[in-house]
Design a protein around this nucleic acid. Structure first.
Length: 455
RNA sequence: GAGGAUGUAGCUCAGCUGGUUAGAGCACCAGAUUGUGGUUCUGGGGGUCGCGGGUUCGAACCCCGUCUUUCUCCCCA
């Protein structure tokens, strides 16, 4: 067998111990918060039938699905003519499974399949990787985790308010203090389309105005012209570009602008109600921002739309979500309204790394190392080791009687903060040497004193 | 899916218009120090120059292909 350099598939990554400790910190914070708000855990399979996934993410989405080749002789029953028809028609004949593309569609499938057993409103959270056959870039991978929380089976706007509350709790818990939750409502966007007279071209309008903060007013207008909007419509769009100084002002401007649009006014009302709930819950409003240019690509949103940005960091949104009325319709169950939020762990990680927000001891798992001088000390240490663990202290014994230098070096590299040195002297007196690896100080203590000190 | 850039030691990078045995810093290993890490000193190991092909007397360097990473567009977390 020839020797070959191992490689990773494009767009995938290993997470070493140091990274995993940090990632778990993020996962734990998110999971704890979701549970606190009454969401229940769910996991779905890595592979789904392609019939479940196809057609749910648009034509481009279908292209980005990883397809799994059928097992065994996948050519069985295939005719030469099938190949001539091109890969698009061939694919479903040789691949009937695909990798999960997001957590929302599998969730919808689950809800439909189990609707008889579920208690509605059904609140679930799900932390799992998803796969996209995208072209990788910085901050974009072919395998990445999503952390979703959704509640289906109610149209109550309390859910929207609770999402805002959870976002505060999660990002506060992570130490990301400076963030902005942008909120909009799809009905407001529809209202805008209505009052400027471009019904039927909504998606082009939404895609363009979503880029406002990125490319600026002129470019947006340019794009809209290219898409075929009339000058009159673009002129009527002007209120969009005025930057309001406060949410209150933004609401007032909107009510004025959209007064002739029933759906638009409905959207404004909904958001005002969300704001009211938020106030009642005592959530600070400082980080909330009504942003009527927020559209997000996903066409299935029908009500509130969320996006969270970390301030002071050059990175895309770290969370996004919204309300959808017909998530399960594609699986034959209409009129099931839901609202959800999705957090991007990889981006949150990058933000925290850039802002230096990880606790300094993250990366540390062992807190106490027992040295191993010789067979006798090893035996002595071994019994103490389990006592330390029983006391809740992450501890380990160096497994070989090697040079002390090597053992201390090991502790240093693993950033283990405390080392107990046990030699013949210590075993005789019962006073063990505890070395603080940060300060270098050593003190003589009994085993119980050491456990009490570190527990 | 379209276009551009990139790849040399574990890491960050030098390497002249193509010319002997491809270098540095950091990291690693050993010793100075047989019960003391992170500092210092001394010594040492480590490279199919991303991979495959071509041009040439000769290729890390030039050409073609391919893969990786990365930037812009598209789309997204």
């Amino acid at each position: 067998m020839s020797i070959q350099k191992p490689t990773l598939p494009r767009g995938t990554r290993d997470f070493g111990p140091e990274q995993m400790v940090k990632r778990n910190f993020i996962f734990d914070t998110i999971r704890r918060t979701f549970q606190k708000y009454g969401f229940q855990p769910l996991e779905t399979p890595t592979i789904e039938n392609l019939s479940v996934l196809m057609g749910k993410y648009g034509e481009e989405g279908d292209q980005l699905l990883f397809k799994v080749l059928n097992s065994g002789n996948f050519l069985d029953g295939l005719q030469p003519a099938d190949i001539d028809e091109g890969y698009k028609k061939l694919t479903p004949k040789i691949a009937e499974k695909g990798l999960r593309y997001d957590l929302t569609v599998p969730f919808a499938r689950y809800v439909v399949m189990n609707r008889g057993e579920l208690t509605f409103p059904f609140k679930r959270y799900q932390l799992q990787p998803v796969w996209r056959a995208d072209r990788p870039q910085k901050g974009r991978y072919r395998e990445f985790y999503q952390c979703d929380a959704d509640v289906v089976g109610t149209t109550s706007l309390i859910c929207e308010a609770e999402i805002v509350a959870m976002l505060h709790e999660i990002f506060g818990g992570l130490g990301i203090g400076d963030f902005t939750i942008k909120i909009n409502n799809r009905k407001i966007l529809s209202g805008i389309a209505e009052v400027i007279g471009v019904a039927g071209m909504e998606s082009a309008l939404f895609v363009a105005i979503d880029k406002l903060d990125k490319i600026g007013k002129e470019k947006v207008e340019e794009e809209l012209r290219e898409k075929g909007l009339s000058e009159a419509s673009i002129k009527k769009l002007q209120p969009l570009f005025g930057a309001p100084t406060s949410n209150r002002e933004a609401f007032e401007n909107l009510k004025d602008w959209l007064q002739n649009s029933q759906v638009g006014m409905k959207g404004v009302q909904e958001l005002e109600q969300v704001w009211k709930y938020i106030r009642t819950m005592g959530i600070p409003e400082k980080k909330l921002q009504l942003d009527i240019t927020l559209a997000r690509g996903l066409s299935y949103y029908t009500g509130a739309i969320f996006e969270v940005k970390a301030n002071g960091v050059q990175i895309g949104s770290i969370s996004g979500g919204g309300r959808y009325d017909n998530l399960t319709a594609a699986f034959g169950v209409p009129n099931l309204s839901g609202v959800g939020i999705s957090l991007g762990v990889d981006r949150i990680y990058d933000v925290m790394e850039e802002l230096n927000l990880f606790p300094s001891d993250s990366g540390t798992t062992t807190r106490l190392l027992f040295t191993n001088f010789d067979a006798q000390a090893e035996e002595f240490s071994l019994s103490l080791l389990q006592k330390a663990r029983a006391a809740g202290i992450n501890a380990e014994l160096f497994p070989e009687s090697s040079k002390l230098k090597k053992q201390l070096d090991y502790a240093d590299r693993k950033r283990i903060p405390f080392v107990v040195l046990i030699g013949s002297e210590e075993m005789e007196s019962g006073l063990l040497t505890l070395k603080n690896m940060t300060t270098g100080e050593q003190e003589k203590l009994t085993a119980d004193q050491i456990l009490a000190k570190l527990a």
